[in-house]
Design a protein around this nucleic acid. Structure first.
Lengths: 213, 213, 213, 213
DNA sequence: AATGAATGAGACTTCATTCAT
DNA sequence: AATGAATGAAGTCTCATTCAT
């Protein structure tokens, strides 16, 4: 268990050339099919043969590009969109809730295409080390971005409250959506939760932690 | 691939007799082993033969008690501790944070034994209908309990804020711990998050939701 | 490469009971089929599916008894007839050639059933450690037996010659037959070679090793 | 499964041109790599892709030069050094042992480069007809050469003994080294065995075969 | 002349499940 | 009630070989 290899993922043959294949380069089609199926049924429960079917390539080609099934997962992780984004332009000083909403919107837009994928990765995180590491790193990045937006958006006088915790809280909510909530994505709830946190911050929540049990 | 039910789970042969087996009735030992292994490696990735090994029973016995592998999962769901608990005695009026901490503590204590199991179930939730339904129901129960504790603990004057959202937020945090956070369970973080939410509530957060996007 | 495991070979189900299978216990039939096919076409070139065909068992049963193909080889080695035999009764003092011929005859008789097998094992000796070790040990045993027979059969006065070398020489001839000569087993040649060696010993060959360049 | 021949081995594209490849013509590098790998792991167990790797040529090139994998084996057989050598200059009349030692030394020197290869060929002899035939022919040539050296080296008076058998015996020893003994090549043993045979011949061994069984 | 993507047959192996005892 | 031998479908992966470029 948990053997990453670093190698295993062969380079794609025609990287930037025009694709006369139906729908992306062959390698890409395989990855897309794999991502979808993994997300729908899980990694172990998805036979490589079904990936081949959906990608409309012969079975052997899967293992030509990705020697082991596991390498498909690794490649999917690498292909994740970079979560980094210049968040500064989203910030409106004094409007924490609005700024956070815009941030979450941006993050979601980026992940939109890979929502299912993201969900899959959370599922496989504790079976595959590479996946887990990637996920944890991404979590850290998100927390950091939230924290930054909050700090920029907060009115100057209210610097005392627990920004760190609020950021973590929101990051967890976001992750929860991507990881577990998959089916019932109720934007309404999310919206209210963002509002709650922003409001709490503006009220100075968390600053004086009173008698911690 | 959906959910069989009704039949499938055979009644244990010697139900009430004294156990001369080493460590619980045979059927129970099988379930425990299955729960552990499913949690460690996932449902599909766990062969029934390995369950038999860990439970120290012959392989045939697994399918004697549980005709299909899937029935093991169903039985594990049924065996989950009832989340219902008389929360009233945990409440100290005026101390929202403390009350919530005690509630979370109780919930954790109940789940302690089945922490891994709970995690497993979240993983398998979108592959197995029966599991998903159970999980969603449990989520609802937890939200409700949190809401109740908050309402009981809140000082009378502050009834205006968004208790519903706060409850959902905390429930999500709890679930996140059980479903995803598996490895790094940092109680410190949880504690601060509870404090943050309680404090926010006391400050009236969420009451006037300002310009919702 | 070269991973023996010690385990891997499941115990046969009905060891000594009467066989109503057609031709030995199931496990034994598999081993016999494997031995034959390995000998004919080599280990790697023999698919387990063909073993199943010849043994007239379903493919899965092969791996029920022998988890890995390699375990078949290991089991075949273990099944080799013990080369040890009470050679003393074969010896006629003063008749070295005759004594050796009887010894070789005995060894051949023992190996007769496993001639092909023996050949196979030599072929696979340098790919599979377990096989090589078994083969080397067997070689040592044979050399020792030959040496003993020679010493018992030699007339007392001629003790000076190089018995060790003669024994090795003959052992090598025997092995050569089993390992390489497979197809054209001309007993005539063997006979003359035994005669030559015996005669040489009686003439005192090897005693004074002259200028070993 | 028998032996194809006649076609199959394409002529190398640039036969006589200067080699700017690193280490021999491309075709030759392929053959060398194939020989090494076949000897190490056996014919069937060696993928052509690994041959390409070791030869540092693209995979397609293997099948460009040698349409079928089997043709590699055939080419290796053809490339074997010619065993024929003018043995007369090695002979010192009256010194049988010395003459044989020099002969064996020469043969070994020729085969030195292809010791492993020779071993491989013996292994594959009974799976590939072409290989077996080549091997048997080579065996005959060696026997003949030994016989010739013995006859030339023997003192005139001792013509009565069984030269044929002695030659066969020694040829077998040589072959045994090349085919089986691969790992523990103890020149010491070989030396003593040559001495034994030569000594036996000088003593007239084999001449009067006494009571053949 | 040379390349490496593509192909599909088939190898080994695992496994849930059945069934005779 | 309990067992483990038996079964065969299906999984992952390898590989010789072809072919368009």
């Amino acid at each position: 268990m948990s053997n990453e290899q670093g190698e295993g993922a062969r380079r794609r043959p025609s990287d930037s050339g025009p694709d006369d294949d139906h729908g992306g380069s062959t390698r890409e089609r395989i990855l897309t099919a794999a991502g979808e199926l993994f997300a729908e049924h899980g990694f172990t429960a998805t036979p490589t043969s079904r990936i081949a079917e959906r990608a409309e390539v012969p079975k052997g080609l899967i293992h030509y590009y990705f020697r082991r099934k596991q390498d498909l997962l690794a490649a999917l992780v690498e292909r994740l969109p970079d979560e980094e984004l210049e968040s500064d332009r989203l910030v409106v000083r004094g409007d924490v809730a609005g700024s956070l909403r815009r941030l979450v919107g941006e993050l979601d837009a980026r992940l939109e295409s890979s929502m299912l994928l993201s969900h899959l990765l959370w599922r496989e995180a504790d079976t595959h080390d590479a996946v887990r590491q990637a996920m944890q790193q991404r979590f850290g990045v998100v927390v950091e971005q939230i924290r930054r937006v909050i700090e920029l958006a907060m009115p100057p006088g209210l610097a005392g409250c627990d920004v760190e915790t609020a950021a973590m809280l929101l990051a967890r909510v976001i992750n929860h959506r991507h990881s577990v909530a998959r089916h019932r994505t109720e934007d309404d709830e999310l919206d209210r939760e963002i509002g709650f946190i922003a409001n709490a911050l503006e009220l100075g929540a968390g600053s004086p932690v009173v008698n911690p049990a």
